[in-house]
Design a protein around this nucleic acid. Structure first.
Length: 417
RNA sequence: GUGAGUAUAGCUCAGUUGGUUAGAGCGCUGGAUUGUGGUUCCAGAGGUCGCCGGUUCAAAUCCGGUUAUUCACCCCA
């Protein structure tokens, strides 16, 4: 599907320099980075002072310079900068690889998990925001998962902070309002107060969050150019999208925040309906990520699918098909060495005719072989004894009906194919 | 990073105030049925009670440590 939308596959190394990874995901993200111990006599080069005081945080830079990637976006940005002369922009790629987070594992949360990322860099066209939402919509529809695709814009959040006069507390504010659906308006009030935001500012923020219409937001952002820009971007994306045509709920949600600190514009998040699980996909636009690695003025936008969580959701909703098309069609059963040998040749004929067939490995008791056929859920068994071998009329048994008839091999092929 | 729970047969789990030989269901093996499965009945096999140490006449049971795992918070896919 990614290919259909014009994306090419790439892969990047599991390990990156820590300098590449740190500072891109927020404070919490840095803490969750897996760090790799340096090779060689790393203790000799360790920070002696930190070593003496058993200061783990302080000693890390002197004994570890590499880490496992935390997501696919940041390594991708590095990749783009590295290959900037060979790539044609806008460059569209998808990437399916594991990432690592030193989190404490629990339900829907793994220390190693696969992300499927779809990104486009080298264009700030809002067409791509719309396209990525369409990809989300189409993928989850194909998987049979009903989802809510929420989107927002960091600029709107920045506008709120400006309008409330708390630009310094931008992160604190977003972290708080991100929890609205979880802890309610009262909860986020406490959260913001706890994080050192003044009472009046909290009132202003809450008032803005109440605003339902985009035009209402525009009015509030009369003093905030960033805020207005955010609203305009949302409007443009919605113009591209025909939300009526979407198979899932696609909606603007002003409380969507997202923790990764590199996002600058539109942000996305996907949650499954009817399943208690965190987000199963997320993404956004990042204007400056390649700039950090030395390539300025290249904007990118991308979304990510969390493979394990999607699997868990499908498991919980029973969405995996019970029978797979590659299942065994017939099991051959023989009684002694002679018929077993004959059955093996018959097996070859059936397989040559394109029928998924198997033979019990030895001429065991029939009961045992039938039981095996049962547990493998085979629709047919083919019984080959002395009579069958002599007459060429083999006993084909329908395991669901319990009926059986004697047929020539040609007829059997016809029935089974 | 903070907090809580769990660990007993292949699997899911009982196991009382510490007290004879640690149980059940499912699964497995054999039989009732010489070449006919799903249902039934009978029999059997299978356990260093996570690991190390302590208390005790006696520990699956109590205590300490350790490892694994699950869950919640934080945060996130």
């Amino acid at each position: 599907m990614f290919v259909k939308y014009g994306y090419q596959p790439i892969e990047t190394p599991a390990m990156e320099n820590l300098s590449t990874l740190t500072g891109k995901y927020g404070e919490e993200g840095d803490r969750l980075l897996f760090k790799v111990l340096n090779n060689g006599d790393f203790l000799a080069k360790a920070n002696k002072e930190a070593l003496e005081h058993l200061d783990s945080n302080k000693i890390v830079p002197s004994i570890s310079k590499r880490g496992l990637r935390y997501d696919l976006t940041v390594p991708f940005a590095r990749f783009v900068v590295m290959h900037q002369n060979d790539l044609v922009f806008p460059f569209k790629r998808y990437q399916i690889q594991p990432v690592w987070r030193a989190d404490r594992p629990q339900k829907g949360r793994y220390q190693e998990f696969f992300q499927c990322d779809v990104d486009v860099v080298g264009s700030d066209s809002l067409m791509y925001e719309a396209e990525l939402i369409q990809i989300y919509d189409e993928v989850f529809a194909a998987l049979g998962i009903e989802v809510t695709i929420k989107f927002n814009n960091r600029k709107i959040l920045a506008g709120i902070a400006e309008a409330a006069g708390i630009t310094d507390n931008f992160m604190d504010m977003t972290i708080a309002i991100d929890k609205l659906d979880k802890i309610g308006p009262k909860g986020i009030r406490e959260e913001m107060l706890k994080r050192g935001i003044s009472n009046e500012a909290v009132d202003r923020v809450n008032a803005i969050l109440e605003t339902k219409s985009l035009n209402g937001l525009k009015a509030i952002f009369s003093e905030s150019e960033t805020g207005r820009k955010g609203v305009e971007e949302i409007e443009k994306v919605m113009q591209f999208l025909n939300t009526d045509a979407a198979k899932n709920d696609v909606k603007f949600d002003i409380t969507l925040a997202r923790g990764l600190s590199y996002y600058t514009g539109c942000i996305f998040e996907v949650t499954a309906k009817d399943v208690k699980m965190g987000s199963i996909g997320g993404g956004g636009r990042y204007d400056d990520l390649t700039g950090i690695f030395g390539l300025k003025n290249v904007s990118g936008v991308g979304v990510s699918f969390g493979a394990e969580r999607i699997y868990d959701v499908m498991q919980e909703l029973n969405l995996f098909p019970k029978k797979d098309a590659a299942a065994l069609k017939v099991l051959l059963i023989a009684f002694d060495d002679e018929t077993h040998n004959f059955a093996f040749k018959t097996l070859g004929n059936l397989r040559a005719a394109g029928i998924n067939a198997d033979l019990y490995p030895e001429p065991a008791k029939m009961k045992k072989q039938m039981k095996y056929a049962n547990s493998r859920n085979v629709p047919y068994t083919l019984i080959i004894g002395g009579d069958e071998m002599e007459t060429g009329l083999l006993t084909l048994k329908n395991m669901t009906e319990g009926t059986q008839e004697k047929l020539h091999i040609e007829e059997i092929v016809r029935v089974l194919s």
